[in-house]
Design a protein around this nucleic acid. Structure first.
Lengths: 342, 342
DNA sequence: GGAATCTGTTTAAGCGCTTCGACACTTCGA
DNA sequence: TCGAAGTGTCGAAGCGCTTAAACAGATTCC
């Protein structure tokens, strides 16, 4: 193993000088800096992470706590995890993966052991048990999602309410008057998952404002479930011409079922999805969709933690940021003007 | 912060005694052990990870290098990542997430800095640049996938060849004689992704053995691409009655297109998918599928690294394991006897 | 009965790094 | 010309832990 002492010897300086060259915390002459940098490169030196964490009381690691659930669209979680990792690297940080099943004890373990300097929490519940632990430990944290009491934390999320509202607006603008909102399975609503409730609320408020009649139906995302949901919708409200789909699993079945029921998209029925663009592009017709960027979400979360860490390191009280990312509407081929009344 | 010295003082012993109680590396009287354990609990002590790594030359972290690509089915990656994390925890290890874009330099960084004791590599290419780095650093590693030269490493993967063969067998058993294999996009084959090639080879060999006529077509997984692929297949081989689908994105479109072409599944055409059970259950009809367990894959990878680490720690040369997990065929409603010749 | 052995505990030496304070030297202002 | 201020480097302490070696006391054996 190559140590800082090896580099110092090779460059003919003391090890503290090497440390200062690497950290930039003291001015170093151009010539010394260069010599040290050459030695670092030639010897392939990487500082020992543990030693650094011990001496500097900073591990340069952030923990990312991911949910085990699979009722949320999993690729999005992965995309967030990857963008968090890449963004963290840009700040010289690495990412430790923790699963949600460790719960508050896991958060405590990571914070108390100094394994991570900061924590990013996904799948946050409104009244999450991990938050008090974080506060007690004085660990810098960012939530992806919103919590009831966000004091001492930053958070970032998609503006799901705005996403719901955009769906209502788009369909209203096209002249649709009766809309069905195909949501997630009922379990998701029962545990008060923020994203599901906020989307629905945003949609509902705007729909009422725009004078739309609408129906919300939960749906598990299988073919059978979607078939059941659709037939109930059409029985209850035969005049329905607009569909908002939040459950990704229901999209394919819904398109198939509409076709089978003799409805052409978008001539007879318009479908707008709340999903990633990549997915929206896969269907025929390509779907009009409202999308938030998972990448941005991850990046912003990292930046928030980094700002908190910088403030705390500089002796300041970190600011509690609260960011909602505005989703984008991409109009494709699955929405069109409402059909004339038959 | 609570240190080992605090615990020692609280329990009225020396700090080395605390250390030995925690590690179990020396015999300790029952009474002392209990006192120490109580103190640990009361003070909420967690050893400082950096200090431990520094002194013991073990970080108790494994790095997991994940691909950025999204042409592979992403939920599977996430499932592997989660099962790796949970399995590692059972061994007292944490998981550091590294993205593939860091390449060989990333592996070197992690190994040289002592951030991780072992590495698990996903999305391994046959002749992967990271492998020599791993060997040079003497880092214990496991591949998820197979490499050309696996000396000094363990590896684990699904037995894709067997999966391909099972598909051929199942369709042959049902009396199908003309089969189409709908693969991944051509990019996947061009970069010689092991899973794609091995599945195809396994299928091809068994198909020839069983006297099947077959066609392999690559497919991007969008509706358009699937439509193009299917129409070419039906033009070239109108007698095709069996379909093997590897690209998850193509499944939905394929089912829709078959229905639109007047073919009923499974009466007129049988479809067998290479995908997760969860996905297979979502379609109508529910799909016969050949599935490997992503969870097992992650767990085995962790166990392999742990065995290597234990051997290396005990001064032995770790054994290079090479495990292929046998996939399972689940027969559902999308395959049936070949139709009588028209 | 005293040496040899075993058991349970402590002492102390690091592990590789950061960082404070000291130091040597240069530059500047009065 | 001298003291003050600034610049670049070094020495050494110490971060919290592990572990080899030493040690004290109880047991065993010849």
């Amino acid at each position: 193993m190559v140590t800082i002492a090896d580099v110092a010897r090779h460059a003919g300086v003391s090890s503290s000088t090497v440390s200062y060259v690497l950290s930039g915390k003291r001015s170093i002459s151009e010539e010394t800096r260069r010599r040290v940098q050459i030695s670092v490169r030639e010897l392939g030196y990487h500082p020992h992470a543990g030693a650094r964490a011990l001496a500097a009381r900073r591990s340069h690691v952030v923990a990312l706590m991911v949910p085990l659930r699979t009722d949320v669209y999993v690729p999005v979680m992965m995309e967030i995890a990857i963008s968090v990792t890449m963004a963290a690297r840009q700040h010289g940080y690495d990412v430790l993966l923790i699963t949600n099943d460790e719960g508050p004890a896991g958060v405590k373990r990571i914070a108390a052991s100094g394994l991570a300097d900061g924590v990013i929490l996904m799948d946050v519940e409104l009244d999450d048990e991990r938050i008090p632990v974080l506060r007690a430990q004085g660990t810098q944290a960012t939530l992806i999602g919103l919590a009831e009491d966000g004091r001492g934390l930053s958070c970032v999320d998609h503006d799901f309410a705005a996403a719901g509202a955009v769906c209502a607006d788009h369909l209203a603008d096209l002249g649709h008057r009766e809309i069905a909102f195909i949501g997630y399975g009922s379990g998701v609503y029962h545990r008060h998952a923020g994203y599901a409730e906020r989307t629905l609320t945003g949609f509902r408020d705007r729909a009422e404002q725009r004078g739309l009649r609408f129906l919300h139906r939960s749906c598990e995302g299988t073919y059978e479930s979607t078939a059941g949901t659709l037939s109930r919708v059409l029985a209850d409200r035969p005049g329905t011409t607009g569909f908002v789909v939040q459950n990704e699993g229901a999209i394919g079945p819904l398109l198939t079922l509409l076709r089978m029921s003799g409805r052409t998209v978008p001539e007879d029925a318009s479908v707008i999805a709340l999903c990633q663009d990549q997915l929206a592009e896969q269907f025929a017709p390509r779907l009009t969709a409202v999308t938030g960027s998972a990448q941005t979400l991850g990046r912003v979360a990292v930046e928030q933690v980094m700002r908190r860490l910088a403030a705390a390191g500089g002796g300041d009280r970190p600011a509690d940021e609260r960011v909602l990312l505005t989703p984008a509407l991409t109009i494709r081929d699955s929405t069109g003007p409402a059909p004339r009344q038959p």
